[in-house]
Simulated assay, not measured.
Amino acid sequence: MREEVLELYDKVVEANPNFVRKGKTMPYTSANGYMFSLLNKDGELGIRLSKEDTVKFDETYGVKPLKSHGATMREYVLIPESLLKDEETLGKYLQKGFEYVMSLPPK
């Protein structure tokens, strides 16, 4: 499953000129000094969202925490399998993650 998710992640990231995939063993995207998405070693994809977007995401998909290396990633939502089949919506959530970290003070 991890390879399928990685292929989808790469495809969605490549489709948006704001994003550059980084990381060899743990793929991620970042902007403004903050990560806003990552694929953990278990093949789970998480996106960092604002509080408002997290509430909307929860209403639609139900929010589950993303864990990476045993730690819960604050402000990240775990992308459910149903959304892994919807490239367009996934791309919109990645854009929301990008916009959120761009609204934070630069690191």
Score class of each variant (00 low, 15 high):
residue 19 F to Q: 00
residue 19 F to I: 02
residue 19 F to A: 04
residue 19 F to T: 03
residue 20 V to H: 12
residue 20 V to T: 02
residue 20 V to N: 11
residue 21 R to M: 10
residue 21 R to C: 00
residue 21 R to D: 03
residue 21 R to N: 05
residue 21 R to L: 15
residue 23 G to H: 02
residue 24 K to Q: 15
residue 25 T to G: 01
residue 25 T to R: 00
residue 25 T to V: 03
residue 29 T to W: 02
residue 30 S to W: 00
residue 30 S to Q: 11
residue 30 S to H: 05
residue 30 S to T: 02
residue 30 S to Y: 01
residue 31 A to N: 06
residue 31 A to R: 13
residue 31 A to I: 01
residue 32 N to G: 09
residue 34 Y to M: 05
residue 35 M to G: 13
residue 35 M to Q: 13
residue 35 M to H: 06
residue 36 F to T: 00
residue 36 F to R: 03
residue 36 F to M: 08
residue 36 F to D: 09
residue 36 F to V: 05
residue 37 S to H: 08
residue 37 S to N: 14
residue 37 S to D: 12
residue 39 L to P: 00
residue 40 N to K: 01
residue 40 N to Q: 04
residue 42 D to P: 02
residue 42 D to E: 10
residue 44 E to Q: 10
residue 46 G to R: 05
residue 48 R to N: 07
residue 48 R to L: 07
residue 48 R to S: 10
residue 48 R to G: 04
residue 49 L to S: 08
residue 50 S to P: 05
residue 50 S to K: 09
residue 50 S to D: 10
residue 52 E to D: 08
residue 52 E to M: 05
residue 52 E to K: 15
residue 52 E to C: 01
residue 53 D to W: 09
residue 53 D to G: 05
residue 53 D to R: 12
residue 53 D to T: 03
residue 54 T to M: 15
residue 54 T to E: 14
residue 54 T to G: 09
residue 55 V to L: 11
residue 56 K to T: 09
residue 56 K to N: 13
residue 56 K to I: 10
residue 57 F to M: 07
residue 59 E to F: 05
residue 59 E to T: 10
residue 59 E to N: 10
residue 60 T to S: 14
residue 60 T to P: 12
residue 61 Y to S: 08
residue 62 G to Q: 11
residue 62 G to W: 14
residue 62 G to V: 12
residue 63 V to M: 09
residue 63 V to Y: 09
residue 63 V to D: 14
residue 63 V to F: 11
residue 64 K to V: 11
residue 64 K to Q: 13
residue 64 K to Y: 15
residue 65 P to M: 07
residue 65 P to N: 12
residue 65 P to W: 06
residue 66 L to V: 10
residue 66 L to G: 04
residue 67 K to W: 06
residue 68 S to V: 04
residue 68 S to L: 06
residue 69 H to E: 01
residue 69 H to R: 11
residue 70 G to Y: 06
residue 71 A to W: 14
residue 71 A to C: 08
residue 71 A to K: 15
residue 71 A to S: 14
residue 74 R to H: 11
residue 74 R to M: 14
residue 74 R to L: 14
residue 75 E to I: 02
residue 75 E to L: 11
residue 75 E to H: 05
residue 75 E to K: 08
residue 77 V to F: 05
residue 78 L to M: 11
residue 78 L to D: 01
residue 78 L to H: 07
residue 79 I to A: 04
residue 79 I to M: 03
residue 80 P to D: 03
residue 81 E to C: 04
residue 82 S to R: 10
residue 82 S to E: 15
residue 83 L to H: 09
residue 83 L to I: 02
